[in-house]
Design a binder for these strands. Structure first.
Length: 396
DNA sequence: ATCGGCCCTCCAATAGGTAC
DNA sequence: GTACCTATTGGAGGGCCGAT
């Protein structure tokens, strides 16, 4: 029985594709800005007011007058409401793949818990075990693997022992920064996943996972536990047959993730505090800190062994590389402070654990091996990560 | 391979909203 | 009020999906 990770990172783009792309819609965002009030007594006979009223906005006179007014001691400010129309087109933003059925969604999410490597490859999965975790028949697993491959979510093959090897097609994009086309990822704990698996209806699953994404939106900083949605907004996320009555019926069913209530055409979602995205991230942070400590400890255990000619285990290859041997200096242990571990754990939540450990190996080879002091390990590691992203973009 | 159930489409009836 | 249009609802039925 392969062990599931306690947490999985799942790309937001692929989640949204699997749930179905939202219909295009426009949103009017209202905000207030402070502007200079020219009805103010001091302005009435002012030259600059006259200039602003007379000259075009692209003229020199106009812009000079504006900057004069900006610094005028007599100016009075007024609040003005501005409306901005924002167009939403998810197909452009997230890309398109055919949407999935409930068991396919569950299977796809489950795969992320089998610690894919940095290329998104997972080896030697047992179909029967997947079936137990999804809560379906083995044949359903095989059928859905086929579907997932057909829809280009994954590639897979069966080896001579009947075990499955998987490639998560978009995995590398999950961790790209926004300016490189990354759309971020959702942190899902094993416990949350299990509860999602308890949701039988496809419509409910779509609504609730969308709600998890909403609560993870950057403007909420992932802290909110309550969200309101109009039935109409929910309809936009669903196939056309999902009339308000259908939605209400599906949301009426028990859920152990959200408490749902209605008022007129507004639905109130309240998430179990345990599963607030922010809390999921706090817990995964603690887990990464523990894992890093263990990693450093194991690493140091290997230093003496490798120095005396022992062969290092595969997962430490990046640290004990042949390149280092040429320097003839013996390998040195790594001693990290609690704060440094904490910083690295935070970066792992942001960029993924593997990427951080890989960057740490760069620090080891280029700094620690030469006894160079590192004042701000977190800063250095994130600089290395960002430059890696830039490199990979040039290569592509 | 087959069968049942659920997802989804289609359609008609009704309710609600707006212009005259 | 009437005419017209849109939104919503419920139901019938097709067909695909998932389970055996």
């Amino acid at each position: 029985m392969k062990c599931l990770d306690n947490f999985a990172n799942i790309g937001k783009s692929v989640i949204i594709q699997s749930l179905g792309i939202q219909k295009n819609y426009t949103e009017v965002i209202e905000s207030t800005v402070e502007t200079i009030d020219y009805n103010n007594a001091a302005c009435i006979n002012c030259k600059y007011k006259a200039v602003i009223e007379t000259f075009g906005k692209d003229s020199r006179a106009y812009s000079d007058a504006c900057s004069t007014c900006e610094h005028c001691p007599h100016k009075a400010l007024a609040h003005k409401n501005v409306y901005k129309k924002v167009y939403h087109n998810e197909k452009n933003r997230y890309g398109y793949r055919p949407m999935l059925k409930a068991n396919a969604i569950k299977l796809f999410m489950l795969l992320h818990f089998y610690h894919p490597d940095s290329n998104g490859i997972i080896r030697n999965l047992d179909a029967g075990e997947l079936a137990v975790n999804v809560g379906c028949n083995v044949r359903t697993i095989w059928n859905n693997l086929k579907t997932l491959q057909e829809y280009t979510y994954i590639s897979y093959s069966k080896n001579e022992y009947g075990l499955i090897n998987i490639l998560l097609n978009d995995y590398e994009n999950y961790y790209l920064p926004a300016n490189k086309g990354g759309r971020g990822f959702l942190v899902v704990s094993k416990e949350l996943y299990k509860r999602l698996c308890n949701i039988k209806s496809l419509v409910s699953l779509r609504i609730f996972i969308r709600e998890l994404l909403s609560l993870d939106a950057p403007e909420l900083k992932g802290q909110a536990s309550v969200d309101y949605k109009k039935i109409k907004e929910i309809r936009n996320l669903l196939p056309a047959y999902c009339k308000p009555s259908v939605i209400k019926e599906k949301l009426g069913q028990e859920s152990d993730i959200f408490i749902v209530s209605f008022k007129d055409d507004v639905v109130r979602f309240q998430i179990d505090t345990e599963f607030i995205p922010k809390n999921e991230k706090l817990r995964v942070h603690d887990e990464y800190a523990r894992t890093l400590e263990k990693f450093i400890w194991e690493f140091n255990q290997n230093v003496a062994y490798v120095n005396s000619g022992g062969i290092c285990p595969d997962y430490l290859n990046d640290f004990f590389s042949i390149k280092n041997k040429k320097s003839a200096a013996p390998f040195k242990p790594m001693l990290l402070t609690e704060i440094e571990i904490d910083d690295l754990a935070s970066l792992s939540v942001h960029y993924s654990y593997d990427i951080v450990v890989n960057a740490l190996s760069v620090v080891y080879r280029e700094y620690y091996m030469y006894q160079k002091t590192v004042n701000n390990l977190g800063g250095l590691v994130s600089t290395i990560i960002r430059s890696e992203f830039n490199k990979s973009k040039k290569a592509a």
